[in-house]
Simulated scan of single mutants.
Amino acid sequence: MSKVSNCLRMLILLKSRGKMKIKELAERLEVSERMIREYKNELEKAEIYLMSEPGKNGGYYLDENSFIFNLNLEEAEISSFLMAKEFLEKEDNFMFLKEYESGLDKIKAAVKGRYDDGKNQHIVKVSRPNIDLEDEKKKYLDISSSIISRNKLEINYFSINSGLVKRVIRPYVLFMYKGFWYCIGYCELRGEIRDFKLSRIRSYKLLEDTFDKPIDFKLSDYLGHNSIFKDKLYNIKLKINPPMSIIISERIWSENQKIIFNQEDNSILFEATMSGLPEIKSWILSMGSCVEILEPEELKEEIREEVKKLKNLYKIY
């Protein structure tokens, strides 16, 4: 990055974050501490003066009256950006977090006055994708490029059912589901449109061969109803007792769901049309003895078989 760009970035950092040590600035800008001092000299030649304070808690800082630019953002607006940063860190392992933080620094630098830095706002996430974010980001960017250029990809893909298999795909679109990125495209090995989870692509190569994307392809046509994959629909009716009845009622599990409360015992009658049998089974089993399946009978049998397997596995009689 050029000296001018880094000088501006240093100003933005100091404007948004306040006092910073030379070492901190050097690490953030990925340059030596000597270069930070040189940037300071360059800024002073342009009559932009940085204040400095010696000692353990010292560092460079900008005078309160220093001005870069003003976006007229309100406090609630900047707070929303700070909260979004916390969400992106915890919720889905956002692969472009570094770029987001850089943009956020520019926004904060443009705001007059001091704002809550979000340290009092916390989002707790029970689990998150176990992936290498830098590797995932490179896959995302490379596959995005192949979608734009219409170049085929040769991938070594690990499938739960088939194991590691080499395939040639024609990538159509990328989308995210539950923190993971997927590529939907035509698989030449299977002769049909398939979805590929980026984290399961072990290696890939951009090919010179190009392809034409079908003009009638729509992501919505590929995705199933209330599930990312096409699947059989189940008209589900559940009786759910406390405490799970309270927990389940606090979330939207399906856009068509209906919940009827029983005021006497705080149980609920849950009805919805859903697809994705593995997810449905996992969801119902997570409620333990609090749930009773009223409909359909097919789902009851699926759960019975799953419970039998658990009994055999753990020798429960």
Rank of each mutant, 00 (worst) to 15 (best):
P242Y: 02
R28L: 10
S227T: 14
G191D: 02
E38T: 09
L43P: 11
V307M: 13
E188G: 08
I169Y: 01
H225C: 07
V168S: 05
L207G: 06
I252D: 13
L82Y: 06
S245R: 00
L269A: 04
E301G: 01
I228Y: 14
F211H: 01
I48Q: 13
G59K: 01
K152M: 14
N130H: 12
E101I: 03
S145H: 02
E292S: 10
E302G: 03
K98S: 13
S245L: 00
I78H: 07
S203W: 00
S162C: 02
L153F: 02
V165D: 08
T273F: 05
W181A: 09
N226W: 08
F196D: 02
Y140F: 15
L206F: 02
R190M: 12
N151M: 00
I155K: 00
G185I: 02
I12N: 09
F69M: 07
S286P: 05
S5W: 00
E27Q: 09
S79I: 11
L71H: 09
L71V: 12
A26L: 02
S79D: 14
E77G: 09
K139S: 05
F158R: 05
P296I: 06
P296Y: 10
E75S: 12
Y60C: 03
M244V: 01
E279G: 12
I148D: 09
E208A: 03
E154R: 06
E24Q: 11
V4R: 05
K300N: 09
N156R: 08
Y204L: 09
K19V: 10
A76M: 06
L313M: 07
D135Y: 11
I78S: 09
D142L: 07
R28E: 15
Y182L: 05
I22S: 14
Y186N: 03
H122S: 15
M10C: 11
R251Q: 14
A84T: 13
I131G: 01
D216Q: 04
T273I: 14
L207A: 10
A110G: 15
K300P: 03
R251I: 13
V165S: 13
K300R: 08
I268A: 06
N41L: 11
I268P: 00
Y60K: 00
Y60M: 04
K315C: 10
N226M: 04
M10W: 07
C187P: 04
E305R: 05
I252C: 06
V165M: 13
N266M: 09
K239A: 10
E250Q: 10
K138E: 15
F270I: 03
P296R: 04
M287T: 01
M1A: 13
C187M: 05
K23M: 15
L174I: 12
S199M: 01
I236N: 04
L8T: 11
D231C: 04
I131W: 01
K178H: 13
R170Y: 13
E33K: 07
S146E: 12
G288R: 00
I155H: 00
S275D: 01
M95K: 00
L8P: 03
L277S: 03
L141D: 15
K258D: 14
I155N: 01
L14N: 09
E250L: 08
K178F: 03
F270T: 08
Y186Q: 02
L277P: 02
E74P: 03
M1D: 13
N266P: 02
I240E: 04
Y115S: 10
G118R: 04
K232A: 12
F196W: 01
E298G: 08
R194V: 07
R37S: 12
M10F: 09
